[in-house]
Amino acid sequence: MKATITLLPGDGIGPEVVAEARRVLEAIADTYNHEFTFHEGLIGGAAIDATGTALPDETLALCTAADAVLLGAVGGIKWSDPKAAVRPEQGLLKLREGMGVYANLRPVVVLDALADASPLRPERVRGVDVMIVRELTGGLYFGTPQGQETIDGERTAVDTLRYHEREIRRVVQLAFELARGRRQKLTSVDKANVLASSRLWREVTHEVAVEYPDVVCEDILVDACAMYLINRPADFDVIVTENMFGDILSDEASMITGSLGMLPSASLGEPGTPGLYEPIHGSAPDIAGKGIANPLATILSAAMLLRSSLGLAEEAAAVEAAVARVLADGARTADIARPGQPRVGTVEMGDLVIAAL
């Protein structure tokens, strides 16, 4: 297979972890006789410094023309002023909108080797395998009007939470399809007791559920779901929810595994369009350049890229198995190591995964 992959290293530890994921993809190409062509683009703070904008037109063009996009992370202390006219996160939102990726898939899987890395008791997290599906291009993050103004001498701010039926339907249908191929259970998360947008979300979800009689569908309010993710995480299969709720719940769920450094994600749009793949962690500027960042979330994001955008399921499974094997053998980066346990660096972890392939 020939494929073009756009790399967006971004800021902080982004370049370090993306470099390791690229090496894994190159190893896969060599092993399975594929030809991957890589292009790099600027995004986030690095793009602001170089061009004055968080997502140059040239970068977006590279992304929409590729078969898939692999992103590192954006942001950092240098660009953290909330009053700044241009911020790194604007590049990420513009990228999602420009690529038309409306569904963010975040798998939360606890490997046996890391059950003791979770802050929860091992018996509570062992066997957890949850797919969180987050609507990505609607809701509060994109609603208008949005902004801050002064009225009668007092500062006021407004954000608009708006959803169209079609936005809800397409992401819920995708979640049902995923549930059908897993354990046939879907949990829809909303705040229908308070929000009109959530009541529409629930109505549309129930309409879509009729098309999937083989999938058990339940509704849970977002505050209850936040509790149940800690109390009984293994009960969940597929969770689907709106943009902000998904953002918060998926970060909460990441702690079930013990580290943000272990969790990949895929952002998908209509069939035939390129997907966007990235670790769910941030740019971690405090450890950038130290060679200690965990590259596994980015490597696992590359595995999702192989499966979902390139249709290479065997190759994706090989990467995931290599990661599991390395962890089972005891290799640990600083974020998942127990006190006194030997630690490996970013490049060394990449070396180990490639060797395990």
Rank of each mutant, 00 (worst) to 15 (best):
I239P: 09
V240R: 04
V240P: 08
V240H: 09
T241F: 11
E242L: 12
E242P: 05
E242F: 05
N243A: 12
N243P: 09
M244Q: 14
F245H: 10
G246H: 08
D247K: 13
D247I: 08
D247H: 12
D251V: 10
E252M: 14
M255V: 13
G258S: 07
G258L: 06
S259G: 05
L260A: 03
G261S: 05
M262N: 02
L263K: 00
P264W: 02
P264A: 08
S265Q: 06
A266P: 03
A266F: 03
S267I: 01
L268F: 04
L268Y: 02
G272Y: 06
P274F: 03
P274T: 03
P274L: 04
L276I: 08
L276W: 01
Y277K: 01
E278D: 06
E278F: 03
H281G: 00
H281V: 00
H281L: 00
G282Q: 01
S283K: 00
A284F: 00
P285N: 05
P285H: 03
P285T: 02
P285G: 03
P285D: 02
D286E: 11
D286F: 00
G289Y: 02
G289H: 04
K290N: 06
K290S: 07
I292T: 11
I292A: 01
N294P: 06
N294D: 11
P295E: 06
L296R: 02
A297C: 09
A297L: 07
A297M: 09
T298R: 01
T298P: 05
S301M: 11
A302K: 05
A302W: 04
A303R: 05
A303G: 10
A303S: 15
M304G: 03
M304R: 10
M304P: 02
L305Q: 06
L305Y: 08
L306H: 05
S308K: 13
S308F: 15
S308N: 14
S309L: 13
L310D: 07
G311F: 13
L312Y: 09
L312S: 05
A313F: 12
E314S: 14
E314D: 15
A317D: 15
A317T: 13
A318H: 15
V319F: 09
E320D: 15
A321Q: 15
A321P: 10
A322G: 11
V323Q: 04
V323M: 09
V323H: 07
R325G: 09
L327C: 09
A328L: 12
A328R: 11
G330I: 08
T333S: 10
A334K: 15
A334E: 14
D335Y: 12
I336Q: 02
I336P: 00
A337L: 08
R338Q: 15
R338A: 14
